[in-house]
Simulated scan of single mutants.
Amino acid sequence: MSAHAGTATAFRIPTMDPAATAECTTLSCEAGAAVTAPVVVATVVAVGLGAFLAFAYVHDAIDADRRERRRVLAERDAFEAFADRVAALDSAPPESTTSGLNGSAVAVRTVDRVGPAGDVRLRRVLAAYRDTVMSVPHYRQEYDETVTESLAAELGPDTTVALASDGTLCAGSKSALVRRGRRAAEARSSLADAIGEEIDSLRAFEDDLSRVDRRRRCLIEHLDGISGSGADAAIDVWERLDDLERECDEIAANRQTTLSDPPMSPVGAVDTGGDRGFYEYLYAPIDGPRYPVLAAVSELAERIRTDRDCVANRLASAR
Rank of each mutant, 00 (worst) to 15 (best):
A56N: 12
R70H: 07
L73E: 09
V86A: 04
A87E: 15
L49Y: 04
V72E: 00
Y57V: 09
L53F: 05
A81G: 00
G48D: 00
A74C: 05
E68V: 14
R69M: 15
P93I: 06
F82Q: 01
D60F: 03
A64E: 08
A81V: 00
D63S: 11
R85F: 04
D90M: 06
Y57A: 07
D77R: 06
H59Y: 13
L73G: 01
F55M: 13
F82S: 00
L73K: 04
A61Q: 01
F52L: 04
A51F: 14
V72K: 01
F52S: 08
S91Q: 11
A54K: 02
A64G: 06
D90H: 08
L73M: 10
A83T: 14
R85I: 04
D65G: 12
G48H: 07
V72M: 02
E75V: 08
A61V: 05
R71H: 04
E80T: 14
A83H: 10
D63E: 05
R76E: 15
A83V: 14
L89F: 10
A78C: 10
V72G: 02
F82V: 05
A54G: 15
A64C: 09
F82R: 01
I62Q: 10
V72R: 03
R71I: 06
A88F: 12
L53N: 06
R66E: 12
D63Q: 12
R76A: 13
V58D: 08
G50K: 00
V86S: 00
A61E: 04
S91E: 12
I62A: 12
R69Y: 09
V72H: 00
R85H: 05
L73A: 05
L89S: 06
L49F: 11
D60R: 00
F55Q: 09
R85S: 10
A56M: 04
A87M: 10
R66I: 15
A56L: 10
R66P: 03
I62H: 06
A78W: 06
A64L: 07
D90K: 03
A81P: 00
E80A: 11
R66S: 11
D90A: 12
L53R: 08
L73S: 05
E75L: 15
A74W: 03
A78Y: 10
E80M: 12
I62V: 15
A81Q: 04
R66K: 09
R70T: 14
P93Y: 04
V72F: 01
D77I: 09
R76M: 15
V72A: 06
A61M: 01
